[in-house]
């Protein structure tokens, strides 16, 4: 993947926002890859969790927003409890989702009004509420 690096991106508001929302110091990550190794969703991700963290360090907002990774994360916390640097990766992914879902120009990732009557009847409430909490603004 070809990306363009610049000091503006590294020092951008995007990086600050993600650090603020997640309460994490993004530079703590030393790219060991342990988070990616244990992630149960990584098989389906276009960017591995550790790659997304690296991209946040570099301020690559567009690349992250266009990737499926944070939308495939199930907030299972496997990565967060294993990171040797104590980085709460799941919280960083939550922050990344919020950057998108809180943007008034962007659509919800899941649109509650499109949930069918059949799904409403069948699915447990905890599935629906947690899904909307993660995927709508």
């Amino acid at each position: 993947m070809k990306v363009e690096l610049s000091s503006e991106k590294v020092k951008s508001d995007f990086v600050k926002k993600v650090e603020e929302l997640s309460g994490q110091n993004i530079l703590s990550c030393y790219q060991c890859g342990k988070c990616s190794a244990g992630c149960p969703s990584s098989y389906a991700m276009d960017l591995l969790p550790s790659q997304v963290i690296r991209m946040v360090q570099l301020g690559l907002q567009d690349e992250i927003v266009n990737s499926k990774t944070v939308w495939l994360c199930a907030s299972c916390l496997t990565c967060s409890v294993r990171c040797p640097r104590g980085v709460d990766i799941a919280a960083i992914f939550e922050a990344l989702r919020l950057v998108v879902t809180r943007d008034k120009d962007k659509l919800n990732y899941v649109e509650p009004s499109e949930i069918t009557a059949e799904q409403l009847e069948e699915l447990p409430q905890i599935a629906l509420i947690s899904n909307f909490r993660k995927f709508t603004g």
Partner: peptide
């Protein structure tokens, strides 16, 4: 025993949950 079941993806990405 501590692997994730796919959680809330059961709403919008059933295939993920089926795999898990």
């Amino acid at each position: 025993k501590t692997e994730c079941c796919g959680s809330y993806h059961t709403v919008n990405a059933v295939e993920v949950v089926v795999e898990r």
